[in-house]
Design a protein around this nucleic acid. Sequence first.
DNA 1: GTAACATCAAAACGAACGTTTGAAAGAAGT
DNA 2: ACTTCTTTCAAACGTTCGTTTTGATGTTAC
Lengths: 252, 252
Amino acid sequence: MSEQKTNSDTRERILDIAERLFMENGYEATSMRMITGAAEVNLAAVNYHFGSKEALLREVFRRRLGWLNEERLRALDRLEQQVVGGALKPSQILEAFFGTLLRMGENPALGGMTFLRLLGRTLTEPAEFIQTFFAGEYAEVIERYKRALYRALPDVPQAEIVWRLHFMLGAMSYAIAGTDVLRVVTGVEVGDLAGEMPAEEFDDSAFARRLAQRLMPFLLGGLRAPLPQFDEPAVKQKESPEKAAREIRPEI
Amino acid sequence: MSEQKTNSDTRERILDIAERLFMENGYEATSMRMITGAAEVNLAAVNYHFGSKEALLREVFRRRLGWLNEERLRALDRLEQQVVGGALKPSQILEAFFGTLLRMGENPALGGMTFLRLLGRTLTEPAEFIQTFFAGEYAEVIERYKRALYRALPDVPQAEIVWRLHFMLGAMSYAIAGTDVLRVVTGVEVGDLAGEMPAEEFDDSAFARRLAQRLMPFLLGGLRAPLPQFDEPAVKQKESPEKAAREIRPEI
DNA sequence: GTAACATCAAAACGAACGTTTGAAAGAAGT
DNA sequence: ACTTCTTTCAAACGTTCGTTTTGATGTTAC
């Protein structure tokens, strides 16, 4: 097989194990010896197959993010073909962007929740090589979705849309990464959150589906919230002092 | 001065430097030699004053989080005294919880944006001693605010409120931690986001204020979003198949 | 003046880190 | 069968890590 660099399953086994360990411990706290030990391969195997620890992390993400972001672009393409020239509904755009990702959590063959959690945690890692990598991987898909949102919400200032996209990414990443983290913070037992469906949430795939169903309305609600008003004049300020944003109806 | 364990400013200088370096590099990637070097103190000073690197990180957080969470409790006390027995508005609760934190970002004496960013990033660190520490620090304040939200939103299932609290914490943490991170991801230049107010956003204090003004409406919108509906029967399901959540008005 | 505390410089500790090396073993091509 | 290329292996490399120790020098308190 000269089509591929290698045909052995050593590479894949390393990637699978590294994906899990990086998720559990973070990049810095996961050593080469932990990875090669758990994968039952020689210590030198990582450097042989990938070159370095940094390159290993990049490859762990590339094999999943590549598919994900292509799928996101395809989903957006499909939507835009349906409404040629017209504007999409925000809910459709969010579904294409976040739904595509959250559906990966239901599919173990695509990394499942392990990869989702890893992604959420790694996005905030300060290491420069990580940030550089993500910037490159996400550039195109973010650009496309940003423009789609601009068109879907023509009355909302573009800067505001970018901020809210930022917030939505954060809510999603944290919701995933902090599954065990913030469950401690919020003091909720795993069983508590279940309530209605006791045993299901322990299953990764069912959990991912529930998460998506709960997250999407939240994100939509945030995206469609009243615009903020600023306490100092920005460009112009001719409207009445208190507008829509400050006073909120008390009930949901 | 026998009132305090120590009177020197070595402790404070170490804490200030460690706060910044932990924020910039993360816990694992910040070495004792980097900290003591930048603080211009002896290498042994950290172990002398704090005992260990882990204890140093805890102390970095304790001196800020202690004040923050006490202030949050005081803010909630004040609100609840105004409406004895009654229910608060969700907006008031969110303002007390998130507003108190975001106002720290405007005050350099309380750590400013440096501490906020550190907090946002460290909340997702997988290290067990970190998670244990946060769980203890946050237990009471989360419990109080959770109950306040239950009372403010009596018609919303409590499990749903916990999830949305989780989402809101995520959106906030990420919004703060990812200031430089997701700015790269979203491909937005610092100047772009400004638009209306070009030079101000470079100032930490002004940035924190803007962030709060944009984040609060988003959080409120998410908290007050229509409830999700599940594709499989949970407790009971007698309403029509498609209810409020799925179909969303396309405009903001 | 003496006891207790704080800081320092310097050196060393063992442990763990990512990476490299050179040879052995295996697979593929002819 | 011989060669060539790839893969695996044990062992070692040099570095850095967090921590501890030793001894000297200020500093503060009673």
